[in-house]
């Protein structure tokens, strides 16, 4: 499955999630949840299936707390479908491959850049935030005290982080400019993922299936 084109994987996730809501509960949700969990299990019971179940578990708990049993099952199966399929695609699809697919599909570099740059910046910024927290702790920051003290402490942590990022915006822009980056321009995809006719057909099929299910559901209800 991991060799499939990124768009096919995403289409599958979108279709499963959409069908979970479109098809009548609980049978529809049972089917989509089973499919999503099967995909997760096939990708790796420990690496994918367990994290998916762990993420879904608290929702079931709170659903039981807030709703009766039939609604709990209906909503829970939908959520399980959504969570399991997104966890599955997250484990199967390296971001670099998705970026390549976007570039190869002629989306221009803008969308690919926005996604990839945010993704790669988050861990770096989190590490920086942690360094600021550690530094302020050395200077006596304490997570205790009243609301006012905590808010002031939060400001002392957040402000340097945000300002450092804004200061770097200019240097990053200069670096991109000097390397020939032009928003909206097409660039050479370095390793375009293979996209066969079969996969393209499969994506259309998924779309048609969702549309048909929706039409059937509306007609059946009305």
């Amino acid at each position: 499955m991991s060799r499939r084109h990124p768009f096919t994987l995403l289409a599958l996730v979108a279709a499963l999630t959409a069908l979970a809501w479109i098809l009548p509960a609980p049978a529809g949700g049972l089917g989509t949840a089973a499919a999503a969990l099967a995909l997760a299990a096939a990708a790796g019971p420990r690496r994918v299936l367990v994290p998916a179940l762990v993420t879904a578990a608290p929702f079931w708990l709170f659903l039981l707390l807030l709703h009766d049993v039939p609604s709990t099952i209906a909503i829970g199966l939908r959520l399980t479908t959504m969570i399991a399929s997104v966890v599955w695609v997250g484990a199967l699809l390296p971001p670099g491959r998705l970026v390549e697919a976007m570039v190869a599909a002629g989306w221009g570099v803008t969308a690919a850049y926005l996604f990839a740059a945010a993704l790669s910046a988050v861990p770096l910024l989190k590490a920086r935030a942690q360094r600021i927290v550690d530094a302020q702790r050395c200077r006596g920051l304490s997570p205790r005290g009243g609301l006012g003290r905590r808010l002031r402490a939060l400001r002392a942590l957040a402000l340097p982080l945000v300002l450092s990022v804004l200061h770097e915006v200019d240097e990053r822009a200069l670096a991109l400019e000097t390397r020939g980056f032009v928003p909206g321009a097409r660039r050479t995809p370095l390793a375009p993922p293979r996209d066969g006719t079969g996969e393209r057909a499969a994506r259309w099929l998924l779309l048609v299936a969702c549309g048909a299910a929706l039409a059937w559901r509306i007609a059946w209800r009305g």
């Binding site: 570099v109 740059a117 790669s120 020939g180």
Partner: peptide
Amino acid sequence: WTQLSGMAFTVRDEVAFGPANLGWPR
């Protein structure tokens, strides 16, 4: 650290970022 493209997940792709923007053949 501010001059990484942010679009590459390997060093090889990072170095290739500029040439790819120029639209050279692979």
